[in-house]
């Protein structure tokens, strides 16, 4: 048993070690701070700033859009609908199932919508597709905290004459630590996911300036550079992987930190 545990925990450390040791060798300031220059893909100068910025745009956009949809749904299920009503149960099941749907299916579906509406592969299409991916993550995480809030809280607000809308605001206030954790989780998932943006966001060497332009993303930058036969380009893929891992680890660690720290003063 201890051996099994060691293997599982060890595989994490091994992944981190491999990525860090390989990535450090080729990580330079240029890679973080420059967009690809001419001949970048045959080993000449430049960096992957375009992919870093693109990934940030998509993750932020998708998380914000996801919040706008998931918070009302969670509030409806917990406060407006009756506890354990048919609708509430179906909604929870839906999110649990959607949570398991792989990103390639979202990617294919996003591509279908894109073609249907006549959109090109663009930042907007990427954000919409990734939003579909993060909605279940956000909804499940927020639902978990709101569901745990004591029923006395809603009893008290209703007794004071508050409407359901006002009660929702009270619950939302109560759920802020959970919401922050949810945001970080969703952001981490969005920034690391490749299969959704593969079809929908396209890839370019410049930083997008409008929603209609295609954009590069970090996971795809890693993937494309790794498949290059030129060693220098491959090495940059390792550096990019290190950057991505670093961002994701920072996000998950701060998610842990926030959920611990902010839940201290909860009712």
């Amino acid at each position: 048993m201890i051996l099994a545990t060691l293997i599982i925990a060890g595989s994490l450390l091994m992944i981190l070690y491999t990525i860090a040791s390989k990535g450090m060798q080729s990580l330079t300031w240029d890679i973080i701070s420059k967009v690809p220059e001419g001949g970048y893909y045959i080993g000449k100068g430049g960096g992957i700033l375009n992919a870093i910025i693109g990934s940030l745009y998509i993750s932020i956009g998708a998380t914000v859009l996801g919040l706008v949809i998931s918070i009302p749904v969670v509030l409806y299920v917990n406060i407006y609908a009756k506890r354990n009503s048919w609708l509430a149960n179906i909604t929870r099941l839906t999110f649990d199932v959607l949570f398991g749907i792989p990103s390639i299916v979202y990617g294919a579906f996003g591509f279908t919508i894109m073609v249907y509406f006549g959109l090109r592969a663009s930042l907007l299409a990427g954000i919409i597709t990734v939003t579909l991916l993060v909605i279940p993550i956000l909804a499940r995480a927020i639902d978990e905290v709101i569901r745990l809030a004591p029923t006395e809280l809603s009893d008290a607000t209703y007794a004071l004459g508050a409407t359901r809308w006002e009660t929702s605001l009270i619950f939302l206030r109560q759920a802020i630590p959970g919401i922050i954790t949810a945001i970080l989780l969703s952001f981490g998932r969005a920034i690391g996911d490749a299969a959704t943006v593969l079809f929908t966001a396209g890839y370019t060497d410049s930083i997008p300036t409008s929603l209609g332009q295609p954009t590069a993303t970090l996971p795809l930058a890693i993937f494309f550079q790794l498949s290059s036969p030129i060693e220098e380009v491959q090495n940059r893929a390792y550096a990019a992987a290190l950057i991505l891992t670093f961002i994701v680890l920072i996000i998950s660690l701060s998610a842990k930190y926030f959920s611990k720290k902010l839940s201290k003063h909860k009712i």
């Binding site: 992944i15 992987a241 891992t245 996000i251």
Partner: peptide
């Protein structure tokens, strides 16, 4: 471990 992106 679950937070690490697939591409990594």
């Amino acid at each position: 471990l679950s937070g690490i992106p697939p591409v990594v």
